[in-house]
């Protein structure tokens, strides 16, 4: 199983996601990247992140994404 960091690197290999605390504000992810990320997270953990949870604050950084995954039922 891939990690969140692995998935982020696949989407935007040019960035070091460990160096940022706000991926969207720092221009590392745009709204289409978020859609691609949600699809990859869903597949990787066999879940379906709720559409109403696809809001910027849930994709700010690694901790926020991890919290979203737990809320969505992923066992991490």
């Amino acid at each position: 199983m891939k990690s969140i960091a692995d998935i982020l690197r696949e989407i935007r290999p040019e960035f070091d996601f460990s160096a940022s605390n706000d991926f969207l504000a720092d221009g590392m992810l745009d709204s289409f990247d978020v859609v691609t990320l949600v699809s990859a997270l869903d597949k990787n953990w066999g879940i379906s992140i709720e559409g109403t949870d696809i809001v910027p604050e849930n994709f700010k950084n690694l901790q926020a994404i991890e919290a979203l995954l737990r809320k969505s039922g992923a066992k991490i």
């Binding site: 859609v35 949600v38 379906s48 709720e50 559409g51 109403t52």
Partner: peptide, 10 residues
């Protein structure tokens, strides 16, 4: 498609 899949799941 993504929007409708999320709608169906919801």
């Amino acid at each position: 498609r993504f929007m409708l899949e999320k709608l169906a799941d919801k």
